[in-house]
């Protein structure tokens, strides 16, 4: 025992990996959520079906198994990913499936009146979504997106399965080397909490920004 500074830097390196997974995973989840969420309300049955299949599959199986597939099984299909890429992909696709349902729900909750007003002023389908429906749906999505992002952060711990040195993995290393469980795990407890806090703050900031001047909309 002794070199606590070294151990701390080990954990901080892990924190960086965790942060990277979270940020990139959230970005992917967001893109996927919009595509699949809009796909769910498409007027084309085939697109609806595809989106539903994706969502049901990723919600219905565990992130653990998904990660395993992405990293260990995809190479047999000729797709080999770096561990970090595999981690981002599994996390993004998994959380994206949940967030897609949020997108769908928010879009469907915009009152019918609004669609009818769009038709009466002769907007095209795309214009309706882009200028009227989506802007009203977005503020409804954000709070739940915040929860999804924090779920994703917590989910990052599974990536040690594919030998990614994230925060939890590094805490294990420190524990093995020092024999102390309390100190490394108390440290990452605080770090996870701070990251979650930063995430929800960030989302809240975006929320106020987007809903600014929208008071009284509903």
């Amino acid at each position: 025992m002794g070199d606590w500074g070294g151990y701390l830097s080990l954990i901080l390196q892990g924190a960086l990996v965790t942060a990277k997974l979270t940020v990139m995973g959230c970005a992917l989840a967001l893109v996927v959520a919009f595509i699949a969420g809009l796909g769910r309300v498409s007027r084309f049955a085939a697109i609806r079906w595809l989106a539903t299949a994706y969502i049901e599959f990723f919600r219905g199986t565990s992130i653990f198994v998904q990660l395993f597939w992405v990293y260990f099984v995809l190479p047999f299909a000729g797709v080999t990913l770096e561990p970090i890429q595999a981690g981002i992909m599994a996390l993004g696709l998994n959380v994206g499936a949940y967030a897609a349902e949020v997108v769908r729900g928010a879009i469907l909750s915009v009152p019918r009146d609004q669609y009818e007003a769009c038709i009466a002023v002769n907007l095209t389908r795309f214009q309706r979504m882009r200028h009227v429906i989506f802007p009203q749906a977005l503020p409804l999505m954000l709070p739940t997106f915040g929860n999804n992002a924090i779920e994703l952060l917590k989910g990052t711990a599974v990536v040690s399965l594919i030998s990614l040195h994230d925060m939890t993995f590094q805490a294990q290393v420190v524990r093995a080397q020092t024999g102390s469980t309390l100190i490394p795990f108390a440290t990452i407890l605080v770090l996870y909490f701070l990251m979650a806090l930063a995430l929800s703050r960030a989302i809240r900031m975006i929320e106020t920004r987007i809903t600014r001047g929208l008071d009284g909309v509903r």
Partner: peptide, 10 residues
Amino acid sequence: VFQHFNLFPH
């Protein structure tokens, strides 16, 4: 023009 106006609130 609709009974309930249907303005775009945003």
